[in-house]
Design a protein around this nucleic acid. Structure first.
Lengths: 348, 348
DNA sequence: TCTAGCACTCCCGCCCGGCGAGTGCCAACC
DNA sequence: GGTTGGCACTCGCCGGGCGGGAGTGCTAGA
């Protein structure tokens, strides 16, 4: 809500920004003297006190107890984040370091996994990456390979270069011609379709021929369905979960346990990371978070994609007292790099 | 060291066993009165005190402070574990629950992942499973599938039903005949070989023909090499990492952080789980653990395999104050189930 | 409208004493 | 001689009281 940003006169604004900054750095409640020691605000401590008192009643700050310094509330952080107009620049070293990680081409899985580690190391928080969603990829090619032991490997290629494969049991009595026939007709029909939008309706539209073929097609569709099911099988990669414990802000073990428990439930993380749309970095602060377990931390996410399509997302989980500027730029930069890689794949 | 077990007279033995049991249950140092309250040892508290004092000097017990009850030392736990001759029986419900999990056939990855979850839930500790090691599987069949975009999918089937696949870039100017030719000769040469033992020597033994073929074969070998590299790419699956935090024994955050950090380094966990040989469950207690980070906990592991071969291992990480009996039977039972599944696959 | 001064509040760390669990020892007992 | 009851002693834990210090809110004056 950038409009909120307008509501504060310049001095309050400056004081609030300085205070949030100090608090993020130190983790200690910030008093009027401490604030002046680090920032030249051109006024006396008493004035600061008056202003912080007002910021308090406005809901931007709060006091741990009556005679302590001030600490930002969620609203205070929100103001701070909204006021960070241009993203903090990444250090050259850091940017280069990240870029290099994406230089050597890898398969999708390693890429994503590496991203998780990279982001967690760059931020010292916990990174979550939602792996490319097959549901949003476009069908390109299906190959059927007979394996030993009456099994069949189906290999699905998509336009973003992802390759999905399943082993399925082969219905009995199918000849090699059946296989090539089925694969030819499936390829014709499915080319260009978005995987998430395949429905069993297609099965009927195929005049399959023998019941054996029909049952094969049906099995394949089941497998395709699983591959393309929205939200279902999307893999999530985590990095730096141990970092959670290094945060002095998470002194409360119960909170940490809930957090780790949340991260373990893959479908929850996956659902969470499904939210970001293409566009700028998104930030959820404290209670703004959709999940109970996360309401004592902050979340920074950005989508990555291939071309125009959103394919997944990168997220960072940290304390509300997070280095927002830095984290936002890392997340933004990394998701950009990922997008580049996938988009390049697509053109091949 | 079961010989240690012989060194104690029956009464000391009984007292030690009872005390370890009580401590595992309560987590509180056990005093002479508390011990008698739960176990009918037929002697007075004073006698217990004399005995525990001796057990203390023998190194089986220790005191948190002078006027507290006794707590088992690593040696005490070791004695206890060695004395658990026959594994605690699993509850019927639990055994059935585990068995059912292995009823419906799944692909290897899901199977292992599910095992990790299963074990962590059954024990309430943290489970680690080392996924089947391709290096130890036997080559069965290699298929080459041309993909869109000048890429090639190689599909490797093994005797234990595992299917490994890699996408590789296709050297230019190869015809379909080249592909079938290369795949035929590779299949002939490699059938029955153990993947971990493939060496580049084989490449030379093939009179490949064109340089294109030669370079293809070389690329394939690289990929096979990666698949079969000992210890390198072995995947580790974790379950219940959040459970670590639920253990009151891990009050010290630093210890927990080290532990989580260790679990994040996949190669370490993989190396750790490579230790167990086929055979009974293995237990490492406290300082017996090979890794510094684990020396404040205990580890229970068992190998699983296919036929005679060891393919991987299941492990549980918990506090030294662990419910050894129960954990050992779960680990043993689960690794048995896994072995059954893989062995069955092998016969297909 | 800002500032200087001041009384007040509340956290934190500290010490202290009482309580209770549990031990170690000793003398008596079988 | 091994076992037992008795008893003094040790030590961690808990609650209360106390001083120091950081920081505030208020008020009066510039």
């Amino acid at each position: 809500m950038p409009e909120t940003a307008q509501r504060l006169d310049p001095r309050k604004r400056a004081i609030l920004m300085a205070l949030v900054e100090d608090y993020i750095r130190t983790g200690e409640p910030v008093g009027s003297l401490a604030l002046l020691a680090r920032h030249d605000l051109g006024v006396s401590p008493a004035t600061i006190r008056n202003e912080t008192a007002e910021l308090d009643t406005l809901g931007y700050l709060q006091q741990p107890h009556t005679s302590a310094g001030r600490v930002p509330s969620s609203r205070g952080y929100r103001f701070y984040v909204d006021s960070l107009t241009h993203p903090e620049d990444l250090e050259d070293v850091e940017a280069r370091w990240i870029r290099e990680a994406y230089d050597s081409p890898r398969d999708a899985e390693t890429l994503i996994q590496q991203t998780a580690r990279l982001v967690s190391e760059a931020t010292s928080y916990t990174a979550m990456v939602l792996g490319p969603r097959y549901a949003r990829a476009v069908f390109r090619d299906l190959k059927l390979v007979r394996l030993p032991g009456d099994r069949l490997l189906m290999v699905l290629s998509t336009d973003v270069g992802l390759v999905e494969h399943r082993v399925i049991d082969l219905p009995e009595g199918l000849t090699d011609e059946d296989l090539t026939g089925v694969s030819r007709s499936l390829n014709e029909i499915l080319r260009g379709m978005i995987l998430g939008k395949l429905t069993r309706g297609f099965v009927r539209s195929l005049n399959a021929g023998s019941t054996g073929r029909r049952s094969l097609i049906s099995t394949i569709f089941d497998a395709l369905g699983r591959a393309g099911q929205a939200d279902a099988e999307d893999k999530v990669y985590l990095g730096g979960t141990a970092n959670i414990l290094s945060q002095p802000d998470f002194g409360d073990l119960d909170v940490v346990r809930d957090l780790l428990g949340f991260l373990e439930r893959e479908h929850l993380v996956s659902a969470l990371l499904s939210e970001p749309q293409a566009g700028p970095v998104q930030v959820y602060i404290g209670e703004e978070n959709p999940y109970q377990e996360l309401q004592s931390c902050s979340l920074v996410m950005a989508a990555y994609g291939a071309g125009e399509r959103v394919m997944g997302a990168v997220g960072v989980l940290g304390p509300t007292r997070m280095r927002y500027g830095h984290v936002m730029s890392v997340v933004s930069y990394v998701s950009g790099q990922l997008t580049d890689v996938l988009t390049r794949q697509m053109r091949r």
